[in-house]
Design a protein around this nucleic acid. Structure first.
Lengths: 227, 227
DNA sequence: CATAAAATTTGACTGCGGTTAAATTGCAAG
DNA sequence: CTTGCAATTTAACCGCAGTCAAATTTTATG
């Protein structure tokens, strides 16, 4: 009997997709994802991740240099971007259509991202008017695996007094998102960077509803499109 | 590290839920579900199903009498009804909110039924106005595991000339559903049983848009609430 | 009622994704 | 340039959900 199903046309299962997803995200920041980081993000032991990475390499989904780290092959990247697209479309759908708060959507989207079918993906995309970003502002990959071009810069890179529109709040931590949302710091809001206190001190941001002072750990999550 | 997740609070995984689901459905018709039937519905070999059933019995989810068949325990029944509720709510959501045709929803709902979270289940239920039936007319179990009381009878049990409202079309075969839908034979439609030809001959049903002649294999899928 | 056929279970095996403990490799600091 | 520690891999194992082939039990039939 054939193993292919609606969701899994080529024998790519949940675990595989989750590995590819975290490897993709880790290789956005550094050039290769190392085993321990991958293991941490997935909540497994480094040895377990090591074994799994070898299997993924055999399946030509990752490029593995022992003791050095992992990169995605074109095919691995394709699957990772598909999962990320589905995750972010789901977040958008849960937020816009179903009315979930922006700090709630990540968990539910994660539960569904590997189970969804392609017609569902397409229908959500359609209902949402082909959005380019999720509720936190992350880019939604196109179906062909390309990414929209944008001009997002860290708010901390602005000069004091400069203004811009928040485009992305780069965290999946629900607590932080809830807090930042309550302070009016969400994508689409025009803000002015008032001040960055020295030595890791608070960052003051002017929003339409008043000034907010944040620790740098939170402020560095915020990306803006400068005016 | 704990194994509990949002979707899986007690270590109940996809395979388990699918077994419980088919056992529930099979025990609706006969008193116990036999191994081969279960295996067929799940697309596995009877030996595989046999082994799995023993595991489910150890976990106290099914009551197993070797060589005789399986029944659900109260806990197994609870989980089966939860899955069925989710499946049917999903079908309703896909149909009503997302605009999928009634013959398309089963596959997509199946892909999601074991992945969905409880808040999502609740939100769908709310958005749909707490429906009691799926698009094909099957009952949606309540959250407490009870089922709405109804008075559905097979249309073939009506006397010639009797009328009723279609309440359920009992199949998951997309082709048949598509055809029956095109003939106007869907839940909510008032019909009259005109004639049942003898010796397995065609069944003639009067609908608002005209008379339809069906084979008995299709006609026996249709349940009505008699006037 | 014996016996053949059908249903079911058991046994031996597989692949997957994990675990812990031990061995290995890479790297930074003295 | 060695030495010690951190990162990584390997080895041996586990549970899960399957497979096929063989043994067993049930049932139906002449």
């Amino acid at each position: 009997m054939s193993k292919a199903t609606y969701t899994d046309p080529v024998g790519v299962n949940d675990a595989t997709l989750h590995y590819l997803d975290v490897i993709y995200r880790l290789t956005q920041q550094s050039d290769a994802a190392n085993t321990t980081e991958i293991a941490e993000k997935l909540g497994v032991t480094p040895s377990g991740a090591s074994v799994m990475l070898k299997r993924l390499a055999e399946r030509k989904l990752v490029q593995l240099t022992p003791y050095k780290g992992a990169t995605l092959t074109p095919e691995g990247r394709r699957l990772a971007l598909r999962t990320i697209r589905r995750h972010r479309l789901l977040e958008m759908f849960l937020h816009q259509v179903m009315g979930f708060a922006w700090h709630e959507v990540d968990d539910h989207a994660h539960a569904l991202e590997t189970a969804i079918t392609e017609p569902l993906e397409d229908r959500m995309d359609e209902m949402l008017g082909h959005p380019t970003r999720c509720p936190h502002g992350h880019l939604i990959p196109n179906k062909d695996g390309t990414l929209p071009q944008v001009n997002d810069v860290p708010i901390l890179s602005l000069a004091s007094g400069a203004t811009g529109v928040i485009r992305c709040v780069d965290t999946d931590n629900g607590e932080w998102l809830k807090y930042l949302g309550e302070q009016g710091l969400k994508p689409g809001v025009r803000v002015t960077l008032k001040d960055i206190a020295p030595y890791g001190g608070p960052v003051t941001i002017e929003t339409p509803s008043g000034a907010v002072a944040l620790g740098q750990n939170l402020a560095e999550l915020i990306y803006v499109e400068p005016d």
